[in-house]
């Protein structure tokens, strides 16, 4: 599986309150959430984002509230992949559980700039900055997480586990 898109670039500690402010959490409808994604730190995000685009950020992306509405909003906004120096742990779990591709890669996070075109090969973990021609390799997922991802997320994993019993 591969993805390619234009990069939206953010800094350290992007918290789930700015990814999707709590005032919109009276719904869990993905499209409604996507309409307000990132609005407290980037009011133009929703207007500019196109299907396949990527978010590249620095350390501790997704910190704060456990709201799964955050990765849901990002996914529904059309983002194909989030690349960061590191992820907050609940966001990391949530993204894998719902099938939003995320890649931990400090080198890519340091080098890739806003507006660059980036492609990602999820099987190899290779990230290519098409604008500069540089390539990076993301931290590999542990085997269990690969299994979760291959299943299509946690719900499918639960189904498979129940069927196996």
């Amino acid at each position: 599986m591969t993805a390619q898109g234009t990069v939206f670039r953010y800094g350290d500690n992007v918290d789930t309150d700015v990814i999707i402010p709590a005032r919109y959490l009276t719904t869990s409808d993905p499209a409604e959430l996507a309409a307000h994604c990132m609005e407290d730190i980037d009011q133009t995000f929703v207007k500019r984002v196109k299907k396949g685009d990527m978010i590249v950020a620095d350390a501790n992306f997704g910190c704060g509230s456990s709201r799964e509405h955050a990765p849901i909003a990002i996914q529904a906004a059309g983002i194909s992949c989030v690349i960061a120096k590191s992820f907050a742990r609940i966001f990391y779990r949530n993204a894998i559980n719902i099938g939003l591709p995320i890649l931990e890669c400090p080198e890519a996070a340091a080098a890739i700039q806003a507006g660059h075109t980036v492609s990602v090969d999820f099987d190899s973990g290779v990230i290519t900055d098409k604008t500069t021609g540089k390539t990076f390799t993301a931290v590999a997922f542990p085997p269990f997480m690969k299994e979760l991802i291959a299943c299509g997320g946690l719900v499918e994993y639960v189904k498979a586990k129940r069927a196996g019993k």
């Binding site: 456990s66 709201r67 799964e68 609940i90 949530n94 559980n97 946690l154 719900v155 994993y157 639960v158």
Partner: peptide, 8 residues
Amino acid sequence: VGSTDMAA
């Protein structure tokens, strides 16, 4: 955890 973890 998140909601899907809660569901599982």
